[in-house]
Computed example of a mutant assay.
Amino acid sequence: MTRVMIVEDDENLRVAVAAKLRAEGLQVDVARDIATADRALRDRHYDCLIFDRMLPDGDAIGYVHARRQQGWGVPVLFLTARDALADRVAGFEHGGDDYLVKPFAVAELSARVANLCRRSATGRPPVLRHADLTMDCARREVRRAGVLLTLSSREFAVLEHLLARAEQAVDRAELMEHCWDSRIDPLAGPKSNLVDVVVKRLRRKLREPELIHTVRGRGYRLGSA
């Protein structure tokens, strides 16, 4: 599921934008300053980030530039009341992918975010592979040793996330955040066993030899052994 974060200290604007994006089917996290956003970004993957430039703890342009220097690839849309050409150019030069001047129409912001999210999605290979497991993301087909498997949308989402992180431990909370929307599914909570139930079904459908391994105290890892 596509996840975005809005970093904006104006509460009314933050709420309005979040409501619009959620209505478009996106998962949305919010933060009012760079420090809060940074903590979230170290724990979660996002498909797009919306940064107000002037935040209580600094200009977001510096933060984004520093993260780009570290190899950070997530698309960024800057929001700002600063509409001078030099400001817009600086936004792009320091790592922004798009720049929207306040005041703006929320519908336009939504369209720009959708475009950036599509760009983010294309950064993932159209076909994910590990051992004899193949996932064609565009066709939504999964094959094990050439045999087509029938998966539910939730099973597909969990397997896609594990495949994208092959050989890495992925905790249950991360899978829950990326594959469920707690606002829509009332059973999707921090104490839910939904992840374990889906993984159990996936293991049965994937058959032997086992590809999804339990990482004690963490979650799961997709790997050959």
Rank of each mutant, 00 (worst) to 15 (best):
T2I: 12
T2G: 00
R3T: 04
R3I: 04
V4H: 06
V7M: 06
E8M: 06
D9Y: 08
E11Y: 02
E11H: 11
V15N: 01
A16N: 11
A18F: 01
L21Y: 05
R22I: 02
A23W: 09
A23D: 06
V28D: 13
A31F: 06
D38M: 13
R39E: 12
R39Q: 10
L41K: 13
C48V: 05
F51T: 00
R53M: 11
D59A: 03
A60L: 06
Y63M: 02
V64F: 08
H65G: 00
H65V: 02
A66Q: 12
A66H: 09
R68S: 00
Q69M: 14
Q70M: 10
V76F: 01
V76H: 05
F78D: 04
F78Q: 06
R82P: 06
R82S: 08
D83T: 02
L85F: 04
D87Q: 13
R88V: 09
V89P: 13
A90P: 10
A90E: 15
G91A: 05
D98K: 12
D98P: 05
L100Y: 03
K102A: 03
F104K: 07
A107H: 14
L109N: 07
A111F: 12
V113K: 11
A114R: 15
L116R: 15
L116E: 11
R118I: 05
S120M: 14
S120T: 11
T122E: 14
G123C: 06
P126F: 02
R129K: 14
A131W: 08
M135K: 11
A138Q: 14
R140L: 09
L149V: 13
S152L: 07
S152Q: 11
F156Q: 04
L163H: 02
L163P: 07
Q168I: 03
Q168T: 04
A169D: 05
V170T: 11
M176W: 09
H178S: 08
H178Q: 12
H178C: 05
C179Y: 10
C179F: 09
W180P: 03
D181K: 07
S182R: 12
D185M: 07
D185K: 10
G189V: 07
S192E: 14
L194E: 08
V198P: 01
R203H: 03
R204Q: 15
R207T: 08
E208M: 07
P209K: 08
P209Q: 10
P209E: 10
E210S: 01
H213L: 07
T214K: 15
T214M: 06
R216L: 08
R221M: 10
R221N: 01
A225Q: 14
